[in-house]
Amino acid sequence: MMKHDESNKLINKSEKLEDFETIRLQSHQNPTKPFRFFSSADCLSKNPIVYRRRDFFKVSLLRGHYIVHYGDESIKAIGCSLSFFSPLVPYTIKQLEQEENAGYMIFTELYYDTYFKQGIRHSPLFNKESKPIFLLDQKQEEEVKAIFLKIEQQEKSDYLFKDDLIRNLLSELMHYANTLQPAIERHYAHSSKERLHSVFNELLDRQFPVVAGQHQQLRTAGDFAETLNVHVNYLNRILKEMTGKSTSAILYERLLREAIILLKHTTWSVSEIAYSLGFKDVSHFNHFFRKHAHATPSHFRN
C-alpha cells in the first residue's frame, strides 16, 4: 500500500496546463492562461517540469545530444533540433548531452483553433504517422530562433492583442517546419522489446489520474495491444520477459493502486470510482477489489 503522503501527492497532482504557472513558476497570476513559453533558464532549472498526461501541444527547440522516444520509435537528435509533440502520441526525451535549450512552448488545442479555421490536428505535423522532429542547419537554426524570440517577447509583453501575434508566429513556425525534412536517423540502442515496454508504460501512465465521470479509455490487455498495433499474445510475452509479469497482472496492480488512492483521497462514491476506472458496474469493481485487496471498497474506505 502506498504511503499517505505519496498517495495524496498523486491524486492532487493535476496535469492541466493552467497549473504549470502555479507549480513551476510559483506564480498565481493568470491561472487559466492557455499558452506558456518556457525560456532557456526555465529549462535548465533543477526542478524540471514533469509531463504525465500530455493533454496539450508542445513545441521545443533543443541543442545537444538527445534520444527522442516518440511512439514506437527512438530518434537520435544531435545538434539543433525543432520538435512538435501532440497529445495523440506518447513521448519522452532522454538528454545525453545538453549544449543549449532555446526554450519550448505548450498550449491547448482551443488556444490555436479559436483563431484559425482549420484545426491544429489537421496539420501534417500532428498526425499519428509523422515524426515531426527536425534537425536544423545553421541558417535554419537562426531563422527558427528568431521566431522563438519573437514569441517569447510577445508572451512577456502587455500588448492587448499579443495572443493573435503569438498564434500567427506559431502558424509561421509550423509552416516553416512543413518545408523541412524530418530526422530519419533511428536509434537502436534500445531493442524493439524495450521500446514496446517503454511505450506501454507511457500509455498506462496516460490513463491516470482518472477524471470523475470519464470512462477509462484503455483497460484490457487487448485494448493496449490494439493501440500498440501488436498481437495481445506478443505484448504479453514481451512484458513477461521484461517484468516477469503478464499484461493483465500489470494492469490489475495499477488499477488496484489507483482505486486505493481514490478511495482514500477523494469523496467520490464507489460507483463513480468504478466507472472512472473502466469497470462495467459496481459489482465487477467490488469483486475485483475484494479479490486483490482482500476487502470490499467500502470496508477499505471506512
Rank of each mutant, 00 (worst) to 15 (best):
R186E: 10
I147L: 12
T267V: 15
R301F: 12
Y275G: 07
H294K: 14
I238V: 09
K150C: 07
S198P: 10
F224V: 00
L218G: 03
L196F: 02
N101G: 01
E172S: 14
D5R: 15
T220M: 05
K33N: 11
K3N: 11
N233Q: 05
S269V: 09
N8Q: 11
C80M: 06
T114N: 11
L10C: 14
D5G: 11
I261H: 09
E194S: 13
L255G: 05
A249S: 09
F300I: 09
D164R: 12
V89G: 02
Q138T: 10
S86V: 02
A225Y: 04
T114K: 13
S74A: 15
F285I: 05
D163E: 15
H292C: 07
Q140T: 02
F20D: 10
R206Y: 01
N47K: 07
V210C: 12
L228C: 00
F107L: 09
T92M: 09
L125V: 02
F300C: 09
P90D: 05
I250T: 12
L204T: 05
Q214P: 09
E142S: 06
L239P: 01
G278P: 03
K145D: 04
S246G: 08
K76L: 08
L160A: 14
E194T: 14
K291M: 14
E73K: 14
V270K: 13
Y188I: 12
M242T: 02
F85A: 03
Y176Q: 10
Q216E: 06
I78C: 07
V199H: 14
L239Q: 03
E100T: 00
N178K: 04
R36K: 10
F56P: 00
H190K: 13
E152M: 15
K145Q: 14
E142R: 04
L255R: 11
P124S: 07
L135E: 06
K156C: 05
K162G: 06
K16H: 15
S271H: 07
K156N: 12
T227F: 01
K150L: 14
S86T: 04
S192H: 10
F285A: 08
V270D: 11
Q181D: 08
S86R: 00
D42C: 00
I106K: 00
R36L: 06
F279Y: 05
I273P: 08
S192L: 12
P132N: 10
N101T: 02
A183H: 00
M105W: 03
T179V: 08
K128F: 02
V199F: 09
G213Q: 09
F20M: 13
R219Y: 11
Y91H: 10
S60H: 04
E18Q: 15
V270L: 13
Q26E: 14
R290I: 03
R186L: 15
I151Y: 08
L25A: 06
D19R: 12
L25Q: 06
F85N: 04
H4P: 07
C80A: 13
E155L: 11
D223A: 03
K13Q: 07
P90M: 05
A41I: 05
G222V: 02
S39D: 08
S276R: 04
A183S: 03
T243G: 05
E97Y: 10
T296S: 13
Y51F: 09
D137S: 05
Q217D: 10
T267I: 12
K139N: 14
N178E: 11
E109C: 01
L160H: 14
E202R: 07
A183D: 01
L17T: 05
H265Q: 07
L203M: 15
R254C: 06
R24G: 11
